[in-house]
């Protein structure tokens, strides 16, 4: 076996896996706050990557500025998502919120199609175009950046959930939103923060992905579902689990592509999703949530 190729495959897997991890983190944050599965999560990645790409390619905005503006825009979209879901005060169960998120995902995708005119956009790497030599394999510098981003984001969120007041409130929402309301913290406030954080993390993932692959209005759905598979793999709602799940999924896909089954690489995520739901629905690292009746 060619070790150089093997390492290269693993590295590219980790690079994409870091993106999945970020998407998975976003699913977890919203799930903890609302109990719902947010189908807009994948669209946040698309909006983040696509808008940064548009700003850079069409409007000549510097890369870093384009990324920051894209993150801000997407975060706003996260807040709007919460308003669209809960602003009417009619959706009360996680199941109905989940279904409504599908509707919003369709709206976002439809709007992005019109705005982008079905064009594709990409970003250059923040670290420049050069490649990196690791153990005899060469990989793009973006790989390193993505891994760094994912690890930092997970670390930051873990600290945020454990050390800050807002963070503990958001975690408390996971266990009991009714108790939370008796303590005077509104469900809507926690939910809005959760969606904003999830959207920002999603946009970050989009900015990390745009240098690796071109972004178009329909990049989000598949990414979102793969991110969900990663989240389930690691245990939904657990940031470190999301990181582990995302990286595992990315590597598994890369191994499939690297060794001759590229056409079926996309299937891996869904086979993993089915397997994990069937065999160990609490995820590899486990959460306390019961998922069986």
């Amino acid at each position: 076996m060619d070790t150089g190729l093997f390492i290269q495959v693993i590295l590219s897997g980790l690079s994409v896996g870091a993106i999945y991890a970020l998407v998975a983190v976003g699913f977890g944050v919203v799930f903890n706050a609302t109990g719902a599965i947010n189908f807009v999560q994948g669209e946040y990645v698309m909006v983040g990557g696509l808008s940064a790409g548009m700003l850079y390619e069409a409007w000549d905005v510097p890369v870093l500025v384009a990324i920051l503006v894209a993150i801000a825009l997407t975060t706003l979209l996260g807040v709007l998502t919460e308003m669209g879901l809960l602003g009417f005060g009619r959706l009360r169960t996680p199941a109905s919120i989940t279904i409504a998120t599908i509707a919003i995902a369709v709206v976002v995708k439809g709007a992005a199609m019109l705005i982008s005119n079905r064009d594709t956009f990409a970003l250059p790497s923040l670290l420049g175009p050069g490649s990196l030599q690791v153990l005899g394999a060469s990989t793009s510098r973006q790989t390193l950046l993505n891994l760094l981003l994912a690890v930092l984001a997970v670390a930051a969120l873990t600290l945020f959930f454990q050390r800050t007041k807002l963070g503990t409130t958001l975690r408390a929402a996971a266990s009991d939103s009714e108790t939370l309301q008796t303590f005077g913290v509104s469900y809507r406030t926690t939910a809005r923060w959760a969606f904003a954080i999830a959207a920002a993390v999603g946009a970050l993932a989009g900015a990390g992905l745009a240098p690796l692959t071109v972004m178009s209005f329909d990049s989000g759905t598949l990414l979102g579902l793969k991110g969900f598979a990663a989240a389930m793999l690691g245990g939904l709602g657990n940031p470190r689990g999301a990181l582990a799940g995302g990286l595992m999924l990315g590597v598994a896909e890369a191994v499939m592509s690297g060794y001759g089954a590229a056409a079926y690489a996309d299937v891996v995520a869904f086979v993993v999703l089915l397997a994990i739901l069937t065999l160990r629905p609490t995820g590899m690292l486990g959460t306390s949530r019961a998922v069986r009746t």
Partner: peptide, 9 residues
């Protein structure tokens, strides 16, 4: 599986 997980499956 519980309903939402059945849906995801």
């Amino acid at each position: 599986l519980k309903e939402i997980y059945f849906t995801m499956a």
